[in-house]
Design a protein around this nucleic acid. Structure first.
Lengths: 183, 183
DNA sequence: CTCGTTCTTGACTGAGTGTTCTTAAACTCG
DNA sequence: CGAGTTTAAGAACACTCAGTCAAGAACGAG
């Protein structure tokens, strides 16, 4: 009963994720969200409670629908160079690229809830790369504080360079370096 | 002639760099700067023209006095594992850690002047690591699109993880992985 | 001292911030 | 058709934003 909702909640969250991923949390105003999502102010606050609530929802969705599935797919692979090159090129298909990155740099230091989500995303990347390393016969591959964490950082750093848009290593160079570790 | 300036310009720029590095560009208001620097609004605008002008000055100073000297020092080293571990732990001694990181993620995509400075900082890291690789007898060490760029990305990613404060690889793990590349 | 210059000071501007409120519209159920 | 409930709509809230202004204070030069 009651008046039916005139917008799709998941679509709105996804659109919000793209805005936040592009301009960051502080750089995205509620007006931007209202315009970009086509959802009225009052409705946003009724559903998500606050700008921060919408942000957390968007980040949660980003993890569930983009990061974790890709991490799972990476973990199935056996070829480390290909995995790293692919992950660095676009861990989420470019849809909301940068949300996790931005969350880590901008919000996590001062927002524990964001930090928890960021940690979850990082851990998923660690595990996926660790699985590939273990499958390649790497003895320390599965360790939490092993090479997997460092390589996950490499993926993040490559995406940061790509985001800054100032040029950086090509996928070939990434694959070449990864080849040295396995070969 | 004229009334003498009541504040040290370089001190003010450094304090601004620390604020921007902590809260980002959008997250730092002019009021924050006025309070944190102890310099009056009008004086800030007279000297730096705008908030953006002060930001560019702070980033420029960060590169000149923190990033470039450290990159030069790194390039003198011969031990890749030690270099990477040191660079990842604190490429600027922790003073304004994160300014370059934040600039790359937040401002570079939409501000060409910031992008140019970020590129300059990245290139310095690339060259420094490339020099170490070449000194270790790495054939592709000196190439611009070689392993050095990927390892510089690793350093950035490690600093991003550290900034997020959610745990990450230890310096030991970093050194161990670097050891595999040289040994 | 006076003049010209530079810097400081504090109040001020209009636009933008996240959030809330009231009223009307759209639906289900009896 | 109401009654009850949920959402949409638009205005309004108090506050903060980046940036400006005119007036005065502190200097060097003549």
């Amino acid at each position: 009963m009651g008046r039916p909702r005139a917008f799709d909640e998941d679509e709105a969250v996804q659109a919000a994720a793209e805005l936040f991923a592009t301009r960051g949390y502080e750089g995205t105003s509620v007006d931007d969200l209202v315009t970009g999502l086509g959802v009225h102010r009052g409705s946003l606050y009724k559903v998500f409670g606050s700008k921060r609530g919408l942000y957390l929802t968007a980040l949660r969705r980003h993890l569930d629908q983009e990061v974790l599935p890709l991490a799972a797919a990476l973990g199935e692979a056996r070829d480390l160079p290909a995995v790293l090159a692919q992950a660095a090129a676009g861990y989420d298909g470019g849809r909301a690229a940068g949300l996790l990155l931005f969350a880590a740099a901008e919000r996590a230091p001062s927002d524990p809830d964001v930090a928890a989500l960021v940690e979850e995303g990082f851990a998923a990347l660690d595990r996926a790369i660790g699985r590939v390393l273990s499958a390649s016969g790497d003895p320390a591959g599965g360790s939490p504080d092993g090479p997997a964490g460092v390589l996950a950082a490499t993926v993040l750093g490559l995406r940061l360079r790509a985001r800054a848009g100032v040029g950086g290593p090509s996928p070939v160079a990434v694959a070449a370096l990864a080849g040295r570790l396995t070969g």
